[in-house]
Amino acid sequence: MKKYLFALSALSAAGLAPAQEVVRIGHVAAMTGPVAHFGKDSENGVRMAIEALNARGATIAGRKVKWVLAPEDDAGEPKQATAAAQKLADAKVNGVIGHETSGTTIPASKIYFDAGIPQITASSTNPAYTKQGFNTTFRVVANDIQLGRALGRYAVKSMAAKRVAVIDDRTAYGQGLVTEFVNGLRQQGVNVVAKEFTNDKATDFSAILTRIRASNPDLVFFGGMNAVAGPMLRQMKQLGLNVKMMGGDGICSDEMHKLSGGTMADGQVVCAEAGGVEAAGKAAMDKFRADYKKRFGIDVQIIAPYSYDATLILAEAMNRAGSAAPAKYLPALAKLRYKGVTGNIAFDPHGDIRDGTITLYTFKGGHRTEIAVTK
């Protein structure tokens, strides 16, 4: 017995004792570029979850685990996204949270599928992502079909919109959102009076806004991100196009006030976030937001609570399967029912969240103000 204990001690001293299991969770989003504020928000949510798992000593089938974040920057660019995805696949991470935008999430998803690595997006909403037939794709927010059509209904029923102009930024996100918004309008018997497009790097919108002004709209819908929507709103005012703007979660943060140069009037912008908690979940979300601010010194943008839940979902699926090996825990992930800070989460056969909520907002005093949570 003494010889056995001595041998174990010698192995440990030599660094040959069994190492603590390390589980690496990849995260990819824009850490640089015009939408980096959303990307950093998403990464912060994952970081909080990793820290929480380590703090409570979260195990897998009773085995001690060291949870590690493996972050990558895709700059919101499809080519960089696939390079980042390949890097994580080659590193054999245990799961991935990301990417941030539909235009990066969709091309990267093929790489994760080929590697057999589960991928959960906390923000990408284009329906095409989960319609590819990949069993590795999951989403914890409502998709553009739900979001766009809800916005279309609200525009007609609550904003009395009758003459609507639409603009998209030619990204997978922007085009998909506009398509479903227009479908939502048509279901209410309203058609668009002008349809224009720009790109996600544009800064001058005078030509398209002049054409839109000629159509005399009472609402402009933009499919894209706030880095473009803010300057566009400022130029709308300069051209005397003083109508309301509507958009999705890409324009749904307090950054809109700053990016518009302070020209955004109270109630002028209405947006929707894919997600949101109903009354019963307010306390948990408020606590998360307070913890986030304490940890990072800034307020939540949009994505952090969803990337936080997505990370904990991966950990829970691994625990239920008794393994961090993707092939072993993937079936458990698909069947998982989980109560997170963003509400109850379960996936349909495509990997979309079941009964996803949508939150409508406007802005008052430059700050986002909730209108309603709907499904």
Rank of each mutant, 00 (worst) to 15 (best):
K2G: 09
V22T: 14
V22F: 01
P34R: 13
G39I: 10
K40V: 14
K40D: 11
D41P: 12
N44L: 05
V46Q: 13
M48L: 14
E51S: 12
A55E: 14
K66V: 10
G76Q: 05
G76W: 01
G76A: 05
Q80G: 01
T82N: 02
A84H: 02
A85M: 03
K92W: 00
N94T: 04
I97V: 13
I111W: 00
F113V: 00
F113K: 14
I117K: 10
S124F: 04
A142Y: 02
Q146C: 08
A150D: 08
G152A: 08
S158M: 12
A161P: 06
I167N: 02
D169Q: 05
L177A: 02
V178L: 10
Q187W: 02
G189V: 12
N191L: 09
K195V: 07
K195W: 02
K201H: 12
R211T: 14
R213V: 08
V228P: 00
A229D: 01
A229F: 05
M232Q: 08
Q235P: 11
G240W: 10
L241D: 10
K244A: 08
M245H: 04
M246H: 06
G247E: 00
G250F: 03
C252I: 10
G261E: 11
G275V: 08
M285C: 00
Y292P: 01
D299C: 06
A304F: 09
T311R: 04
A324K: 15
P326F: 01
K328Y: 11
Y338E: 06
K339T: 15
G340H: 10
G340D: 04
T342N: 12
T342I: 13
N344S: 14
G351I: 07
D352H: 10
R354K: 15
R354I: 15
D355I: 04
T374M: 13
